[in-house]
């Protein structure tokens, strides 16, 4: 019984959406920008025309840099071979799978006439919110582990 409960908990924490209807109806999603869904703890990233959800538990760390006219946002994911938390390792039902390890986005810091903010503000917002959601998720996970012990 406890095994079933455990499995359910893992599933709950790592699946972003049950279907497309749960995806947020935000302009960023439709406009193929990055969007951080705080309710479902998911980052929606545009990949060649498709808004793709990634659950916060898959994200290891992120970094941002400004080089010249561009802002870069790099997102590193958990994968085998890297340091993984106790809980995450149990999630990989298929160790032979291919893992997305890293993605890098680039956006210009230059404002076009008529734009309120430069396109790179989307990456700045995403960076801030990913950090925020990640912190909250990690705190909650630590609390749950403490309760179990």
């Amino acid at each position: 019984q406890s095994g079933g409960k455990e499995a359910e908990k893992i599933r709950k924490s790592t699946v972003s959406y049950k279907g497309v209807n749960q995806m947020p109806r935000e302009p960023e999603v439709k406009d193929l920008k990055l969007y951080v869904d705080r309710k479902y703890e998911t980052i929606i990233m545009p990949i060649f025309g498709i808004p793709v959800p990634f659950h916060i538990s898959t994200i290891k760390n992120i970094s941002q840099s400004v080089e010249g006219d561009y802002t870069y946002l790099r997102i590193n994911f958990f994968h085998p071979g890297a340091t993984m938390g106790k809980n995450e390792s149990g999630n990989y039902s298929s160790p032979d799978a291919t893992f997305l390890k890293e993605v890098t986005y680039r956006s210009t810091n230059t404002k076009e006439p008529g734009e309120i903010s430069p396109p790179s503000s989307n990456l700045n917002t995403a960076f801030r919110l990913i950090k925020e959601v990640q912190k909250r998720f990690k705190t909650r996970e630590a609390e749950e582990r403490e309760k179990e012990d």
């Binding site: 406009d31 193929l32 920008k33 990055l34 990233m45 545009p46 990949i47 060649f48 870069y72 994968h79 085998p80 071979g81 160790p95 032979d96 799978a97 291919t98 893992f99 997305l100 390890k101 890293e102 993605v103 890098t104 986005y105 680039r106 956006s107 210009t108 396109p119 989307n122 990456l123």
Partner: peptide, 17 residues
């Protein structure tokens, strides 16, 4: 790169066990 995209994906890395 596509300069028309507000946010563009420039690189992707995969881990293949």
């Amino acid at each position: 790169q596509n300069d028309d995209a507000p946010v563009s994906l420039i690189e992707m890395r995969y881990h293949i066990p």
